[in-house]
Simulated scan of single mutants.
Amino acid sequence: MDNDERVIGIKDVAKAANVALATVDRVIHNRAGVSLKTKEKVLKVIKQMGYKPNIMASNLSKSKKIVIGVLLPNISEGSGYWEFPMQGILKAKKELAQYNIKIKTYTFKQDNSKEIRKKILELINSDIQGLVLTSKFADEIEILLDDCKQKNRPYVFIDSNVRKIDSLCSIHQPLFESGELAAQLFNYCFDRGEILILHLKKTMDTEGIIGLKEKGMNAYLNEKNNAITTKSLVLTDFNEDAISDILFKTLEDNPLIKGVFIPNSKVAYIAKYFEKRAGDKIYLIGYDFFREDVEYMEKEIIDFLICQRPEEQGYQAVFKLFEHLVLKKEVEKEIIMPLDIITKKNYKYY
């Protein structure tokens, strides 16, 4: 379909006017709660884009409840990352409230296979019409995906889809390229030495996610700078004393290490050690941005964070199911998130 023939939706209007979806809906239905200036701006965009209300979606919103299931790890001290996709999911739920979209959340402990299987059985026996989940735990969710296919329940992956499992849509970061980006950042900091790749892992995470990042890092260095090499170390005990002992010995035995790469969101565990460590500067790069990272960025202990917009992933996942289930639109099979670089100079605006 040519761009000129594409059906303009309420989401397109909201994006063009730089306002929330709910604001556009209020303007269309002449409801209160919108300033005159904003209303005029939205009406102008509607006229320019030639938007026409979707009668089918309007009728569905009045008569049918859409239930979307969400299967994600618990929000906890060890997996705080999942708080952000949930924020995006709840934001989308709020904006789509007028369409009678309901969210049912099923959370589990990442290191508990029995619990995830229990949640999967609950989902199988539920009344959901669509599903948001991560493919990190592909071995456990295989029976759930088979059930979804049999019942024609579409599902959307967020965070990663390393195994390339078929889905309505997959929303994730480019893993290999993020490893290349981390290597490029280290290369800006020093031109020879070693990078220690620290795998902080005690959950059911698939090796492929971290492995692709490591491959990306090594590919970049092999092409651009053979004077920088890497070595890997797996940590399964996140106790502060255990981390301190292992890092002290590793850095003592490998004096050429000038950078440490944490290929997941647990960089604060390592930053805590470096805060107390004496000696030459060692550059530290990790993933995602949490409140506990602020102090370490201010002190320039964490030098860079690579962020994959997890909140937007959750938000987009719900909207893709909405577009498919309610608007009957064809949605993208894959959405690749931009890789944002966060530093001491810009984290306040992120």
Rank of each mutant, 00 (worst) to 15 (best):
E5V: 11
I10H: 03
K15P: 07
A16M: 13
I28V: 10
G33Y: 08
V34S: 04
L36C: 12
K37I: 14
V42E: 04
V42D: 01
K44S: 13
I46G: 01
K52F: 08
I55V: 14
V67H: 12
P73K: 06
N74F: 10
G78W: 08
G78R: 15
S79V: 12
E83T: 11
F84I: 07
I89W: 02
I89M: 06
L90A: 09
A92K: 01
Q98T: 09
K104L: 05
K104I: 07
T107H: 11
R117I: 09
E122C: 10
L123P: 03
V132S: 00
S135N: 12
F137M: 03
I143S: 14
V156T: 04
I158M: 03
I165W: 04
I171W: 00
H172V: 07
L175W: 04
L175S: 02
E177M: 12
G179P: 01
E180Y: 04
L181H: 02
L181E: 04
E194N: 07
E194W: 01
I197D: 07
D205Q: 05
G211I: 09
K213R: 14
G216A: 10
M217Y: 02
A219G: 06
I228N: 01
T229Y: 06
D237H: 07
A242E: 12
D245F: 14
D245N: 15
I246H: 08
T250V: 13
E252H: 15
D253C: 13
K266M: 11
A268P: 11
A271W: 00
E275R: 13
E275K: 13
R277N: 07
A278E: 14
G279P: 03
D280Q: 11
I282H: 05
I285H: 02
D288R: 04
D288N: 10
D293W: 01
Y296A: 03
L305M: 04
E312V: 08
Q313H: 08
A317S: 06
A317L: 03
V318A: 02
E323Y: 05
L325G: 01
L327A: 11
K329S: 14
I335R: 01
L339Y: 10
I342Y: 00
K344W: 05
N346S: 11
K348D: 13
Y349Q: 13
